[in-house]
């Protein structure tokens, strides 16, 4: 079967400094791939290249066999990619329901309609109910997002990313700032997504990474340092040296 996402020779420079160097990998449909790496390894930069927020200096990105290297963010979403944000990125002044409605509208027809009352759109409302029930926020639908608890906003964050029923879900540190229990919750949620959704995640959180991944890629100084299954990565000496060490150190320091 053809790969869902194929990345070849992807690079980006910031004023002579290569933040991502010649990265090549691919994701099969249904796979769970996690990228790890110490701070400054270029994880977020690579992520932004894949989502289209940054323009690469070189290389190619193919999605479903289509060249999307220079496609804008929204066009990638239309093709079936979706992303979550590390820093919670919602519509804080709207209600939970309106957040869901807007998110669902993104990949549906009629998003340029200028007549008809948006909040009364029956099709959207029933889809929103389904979406919010799936993330246990239906009861909170009338609350303004800015009044939600942090854990709830993280859930909604994931919910909005799933609103477009993506083929490829890209998660940027989904457990950022959560308690271990909440983080476990997120792990479970990702694992119950079903094989129709392919997952690419970057994470600091080792428990989450090993809890989700089928394959792990270690990024170091903007390059792929090694890749393998969870067990292979656990056993890998390079990983121990450059990542686990610093991870432990930072945990101990924090």
């Amino acid at each position: 079967m053809a790969a869902l996402l194929e990345v070849s020779g992807l690079s980006v420079h910031f004023g002579g400094l290569a933040a991502v160097k010649d990265v090549t990998f691919s994701i099969e449909p249904g796979e769970r791939l996690v990228m790890i790496g110490p701070n400054g390894a270029g994880k977020t930069t690579l992520f932004n290249l894949l989502t289209g927020q940054l323009k690469p200096s070189g290389g190619k990105v193919l999605f479903k066999g289509q060249d999307i290297t220079h496609k804008p963010v929204y066009a990638r979403t239309q093709l079936g990619m979706a992303r979550s944000f590390q820093i919670t990125s919602l519509f804080p002044n709207e209600t939970v329901l309106t957040n869901a409605l807007i998110a669902l509208q993104g990949t549906r027809g009629g998003r340029y309609r200028m007549f008809g009352v948006f909040t009364r759109d029956k099709v959207l409302r029933s889809a929103a109910q389904e979406l919010l029930e799936s993330i246990d926020l239906w009861d909170k639908r009338s609350e303004t997002v800015s009044s939600l608890a942090y854990g709830e906003t993280r859930k909604l964050e994931m919910g909005l990313s799933l609103a477009s029923s993506p083929d490829l879900l890209m998660l940027d540190e989904p457990s950022c700032g959560l308690t271990p229990t909440e983080s476990k919750d997120i792990t479970e949620r990702i694992n119950t997504l079903g094989k129709k959704i392919t997952v690419l995640m970057i994470s600091h959180d080792m428990d989450l990474a090993f809890g989700v991944a089928e394959r792990i890629i270690l990024l170091h100084f903007g390059e792929i340092s090694c890749e393998g299954t969870c067990d292979e990565i656990r056993a890998n000496q390079t990983v121990k040296d450059i990542y686990m060490g610093s991870h432990k150190a930072s945990t101990a320091g924090g």
Binding site: T51, Q53, P72, V73, Y74, T77, Q78, A82, R83, F85, S89, L90, F91, P92, N93, E94, T98, L101, I102, A103, Q105, G106, T107, G110, R111, Y112, R113, M114, F115, G116, V117, F118, T119, D121, L160, S161, A163, S164
Partner: peptide
């Protein structure tokens, strides 16, 4: 309308709107 709410969404959070398609 649908258009109007998209505009409000852009006011609130343009990056998210792009990511939503």
């Amino acid at each position: 309308s649908h258009y109007g709410y998209a505009l409000r969404g852009i006011h609130d959070n343009e990056r998210r709107m792009q990511a939503l398609g």
